[in-house]
Amino acid sequence: MKIKYHPTDELIEHFTAGILSPALSVLVSTHLDLCPRCQQVNLEVEESLAEQLITTSPAGVNTADYDQMLEHIFNSPAPVQQPQRQSLHSLRVNGKTFVLPPTLARQYQRIGQWSRIPGKMFKAPVQLGSDECIHLIYMDKGSRVPEHTHKGNEVTLVINGVFNDEQDEYRDGDFVMLDQQHKHQPQTQSHDCLTLATLDAPLLFTAGLPRLLNPFSSLFFK
């Protein structure tokens, strides 16, 4: 199945340059695990940044000395690298087992306990060693999140499965970034879904009785 939703090229550029927040870095990196298109964009950005570094002498460095240093680096024998065995980790939730993409596999020890949340869903935090926290969110078949908008940005990456809202259907690898201008009601139908998500501000429920939950919306995904 072709991935329809991707991080912007600008977001990938910021990721490659190392200036994204830890939470967004993990989501973009996990998307790259799943998306050949964005892997190519990332490679092109890496090559562009490398070319800029090579063609621009650092401030205060003699140009001749810089060129000599680069020549020495390029003429040095490449180190012999032993092939590394790719570690595989799986997690089990609601009786189903999911194999994690490489980026999440490296964060395996940071995944906390699963807890049930309203709407036939479960969440598990992934602690990043900073003030930020991302969540694995499992939506069982027939799950539904109350209609809401966002006080900040919400980024959701589909790891496995299918969910939909009023705008479209989202499958493995889709990277969905929403802000205060978006209102939606995510739900699953005949398939379940495992996602990775981050918020930089709580949800804001917009319809019916769930609006009474707004003071407690951080209990969902934040």
Rank of each mutant, 00 (worst) to 15 (best):
G112K: 08
A124Y: 04
S90H: 05
D200C: 12
C35W: 09
D140H: 08
P7Q: 03
Q180D: 15
Q185M: 08
E46G: 14
L91Y: 02
L203M: 06
F98C: 02
P101D: 09
K2R: 08
D200Y: 11
H148M: 07
L178M: 15
K96H: 13
L178P: 00
V28M: 00
F205E: 04
V41T: 09
T63Y: 03
Q180K: 10
G119N: 02
P102R: 12
S130P: 13
H184L: 15
M69N: 10
Q189P: 02
R171L: 10
T149R: 06
S25Q: 09
P186E: 12
D179G: 03
H191L: 06
G142R: 07
I12S: 00
H191F: 10
G152T: 02
V155Y: 01
H135M: 05
S90R: 01
D140E: 15
E44D: 15
E147W: 09
L199V: 14
A50W: 07
V61G: 13
C193P: 01
P79T: 09
Q189W: 04
V45Q: 10
L196N: 02
H150W: 11
Q185P: 05
D140L: 14
D192R: 04
T195I: 09
P79H: 07
R85F: 13
S217L: 07
L136C: 10
G60C: 11
